[in-house]
């Protein structure tokens, strides 16, 4: 195997240099990672959720340990559009990385306004966060197909940028919510977001998190995510960005086989800061050693029994 494997992939026409993307909420706006590696070595950057107004987030404690993972209840803390546009966006655009900006709102109108403003920027793609479990109303849009369809269609009407819809696993049918996103004009779906969960301090008889509940992430949720990615792959035509507890190159390959066109790395990068960029290297090595010439040959190549 002399030739370097081709790691490039596309998500609904958006070309990525490789399939590895730090997940929104676990990468900030890229500044912390950029101290340790060049962001342009990544497939892209899914930047932290952005709302119109600044959000302070939830009171601490915001994190709790779990078996093979963690719970977080950050509460979508972000500087809001004005500070983001002034301080964060220009810096991110200088990094020469494919930029996927995650957005969140209280109402459909909030999402529409954010997308309308992003349309006038050089952001490469928009990811709609319909599923953050840590704020009172973040779940409401993502739990039902009607809510997904309403937000997606409204945003679709104001942007020609690639539109990814990030789905919550907290729904009766992930296929139904993914299909609703596709019907409403989404270019791709990213799944899964965290799973609502609770950790209890028995001595204090209190939840560890000040928010009581938080989103479970990490390897604990990986099998759930793989099942959902594969279900959606077999039932819905638009591309999938796989998310959920990815730590190793074998995990990356598993998501590609299940049907993901790209993947996002979240919790693992909190423990191993260079893991996203290390996985790019590892993926090339894995493809070479397995005789895989193009990483896209792996997408959906899973053979069910």
């Amino acid at each position: 195997m002399g030739a370097n494997p081709d790691l490039t992939t596309t998500v609904a026409g958006l070309a990525l240099p490789n399939p590895i993307i730090p997940a929104s909420g676990c990468a900030g706006y890229g500044r912390e990672f950029a101290k340790h590696f060049e962001l342009r070595r990544l497939g892209g950057l899914a930047a932290k959720a952005l709302s119109l107004e600044p959000r302070r987030g939830n009171p601490p404690p915001r994190v709790a340990e779990a078996a093979a993972g963690m719970l977080n209840a950050v509460g979508l803390q972000n500087p809001g559009w004005d500070l983001w546009a002034h301080d964060e966006l220009p810096w991110m655009l200088e990094q020469d990385v494919i930029l996927i900006q995650n957005i969140v709102g209280h109402t459909v109108a909030d999402y529409v306004e954010l997308a309308r403003r992003l349309e006038g920027t050089a952001v490469d793609a928009i990811e709609i966060n319909l599923s953050c479990p840590n704020v009172a109303d973040g779940m409401s849009f993502g739990a039902e197909p009607d809510g997904v369809e309403a937000v997606t269609a409204a945003v679709r009407a104001v942007t020609r940028k690639p539109l990814w819809v990030k789905l919550t696993p907290q729904t009766a049918s992930i296929v139904a919510t993914a299909a609703a996103a596709a019907r409403a004009g989404a270019d791709a779906v990213s799944l899964i977001n965290t799973i609502p969960a609770m950790v209890i301090d028995v001595e204090r008889r209190r939840p560890v998190l000040r928010n009581n509940t938080g989103g479970l992430s990490g390897p604990a949720i990986r099998p759930v995510a793989l099942r959902m990615v594969n279900e959606v792959y077999r039932a819905v035509a638009i591309p999938i960005v796989g998310i959920g507890g990815i730590e190793t190159v074998e995990d990356v390959v598993a998501f590609l086989l299940a049907g993901a066109s790209a993947v996002q790395i979240g919790t693992a990068a909190l423990v191993h800061p260079t893991r996203p960029v290390d996985l790019v290297t590892d993926l090339a090595v894995w493809c070479r050693s397995h005789g895989v010439a193009r990483v896209t040959d792996l997408i959906g190549a899973l053979e069910l029994w």
């Binding site: 676990c26 915001r62 909190l270 800061p273």
Partner: peptide
């Protein structure tokens, strides 16, 4: 002191 996940700034959990 505060509970923190990453320690290098990305997770935003160690709020004060």
């Amino acid at each position: 002191e505060e509970r923190m996940a990453c320690g290098f700034g990305v997770c935003r959990t160690c709020a004060c």
